[in-house]
Design a binder for these strands. Structure first.
Lengths: 243, 243
DNA sequence: TTGACGATGTGTACAGCGTACACCTATCGT
DNA sequence: ACGATAGGTGTACGCTGTACACATCGTCAA
């Protein structure tokens, strides 16, 4: 391990590279993060980065991993309690991810199994397991939460107030609001409830959806669900048995 | 409008470009779809594409839009019925999207409001509205469904059987399974229930989660939910009021 | 003390990308 | 008959990720 004597400048390290990349993405947007620009920001030649990062993909993986590592753990839940700890854990993740605008996209794009990501999933799973959920139920409940374990949800209606919802590219036709009366009704209703707001209250929608899902989880637990029996009577011929 | 007489070869068109791009993505993966390669596949010079597509982004938007346009509509639901039509609509979308491996990523990555996409959201919204849901409830229910309206859900445990879950890049440490006892317990349980399977039954998980969510929706409707009151007693200080 | 080694940073080079811009040509409306 | 215009061509530019050969330097064994 070299560079024990700081010969003028701080030596590079994976952590330093990742932190710089995150800072750069925060400041200029993730699409501006190129190996060259990042190297420049670190006062180093581009190829130097490859000593600490396998390739660009690994760089972004590392950025996401670092972010998840920053999520504060919640206090050990009291026995049998799971709802509040889950809510708080996810809320903490949402805080971290939404404070880095590029992170949501990065997260949706990759299926990471890095140490911090696995550690996070472990923590969340343990909340359920320690509250007495079976491994089976915990597994399904994690799937039910889906991307919401990362505190993210898709922006469904980018601009629910009548007009600016239409901003198509030049080459294809601009959609006509009159073709979407249902959506317009929803947009009008939402706009009436939140005067002045230009789009959905994403935080409120997230909280709402999470609560409904947590209700569902509570019910599964109460009724002693396990994957042997199905949730409900009327099921469509299950896709899994269909092909 | 030129080229009315077919002078040898089929003229280019936005639709033809998009179909070719989809075919190319299906065959070689979306990352291999470059303007140059696509042009070559169409027997045309790269810049020719720009007469039908604004830029690369518009190309991918168009591909996704085309795909959604291919989702077959469901029959007009009988009055008051919403659950089966919603399930069938989403199931149809899932069929389409999962048959193009690149489409899930493409969908997660972009927030599209193209005609076909809006049309699809309109159809789904109308099922609820026509079943007597208020605009308010329909709005929230769409958010609750989230990315699942596209028939997609994240791959949470890529390989839930003990070993291959660890496949990190060279530069960062390989995670140690012993650090994740909860996840390993889940993986072991899942593996025991589906011998021979290497990963989760994504279709079954999707169906399961969708049913739980539909249960939640049914309950909201039954209890006459509206966005004035909250879902349940114990709420964390709402993020929307927190900052 | 020496000297080989391994880890780190440098420099050059290359193939591939998206696309701006100028151009040619065939077609259509007048 | 003719100018406008839409569609296809060719060239060129700046940017990307990264392979590869090289220089530098701290560490440890001999």
């Amino acid at each position: 391990m070299p560079r024990s004597t700081p010969s003028g400048k701080e030596p590079l390290s994976r952590a330093r590279v990742l932190r710089a990349a995150i800072a750069l993405a925060d400041a200029e947007g993730i699409e501006k993060v190129s190996m060259r620009r990042l190297a420049e920001a670190l006062g180093v030649v581009p190829m130097a980065l490859y000593k600490h990062v396998a390739d660009k993909d690994d760089l972004v993986d590392g950025m996401v991993d670092t972010l998840i590592g920053d999520v504060p753990p919640v206090a050990e839940p009291r026995p049998g309690k799971w709802r509040a700890p889950v809510r708080e854990t996810i809320s903490g993740t949402r805080d971290v991810i939404t404070s880095h605008p590029w992170a949501r996209r990065a997260f949706e794009t990759r299926t990471l199994r890095t140490p911090a990501v696995l550690g996070y999933m472990e923590r969340l799973s343990q909340i359920f397991l320690r509250a007495g959920f079976s491994a089976d139920l915990t597994h399904h409940v994690m799937h039910l939460l889906g991307a919401r374990i990362w505190g993210i949800s898709p922006e469904l209606f980018t601009a629910p107030d009548g007009v600016p919802m239409a901003q198509r590219r030049v080459t294809s036709g601009t959609p006509d609001p009159a073709d979407y009366p249902g959506i317009m009704a929803i947009a009008a209703d939402a706009a009436a409830r939140r005067p002045g707001a230009a789009s959905c209250d994403e935080d409120a929608e997230f909280d709402f959806a999470l609560e409904v899902i947590l209700d569902g989880i509570a019910r599964l637990r109460r009724t002693g669900w396990d994957s042997g029996r199905s949730t409900r009577g009327q099921r469509v011929p299950s896709r899994s048995s269909r092909n």
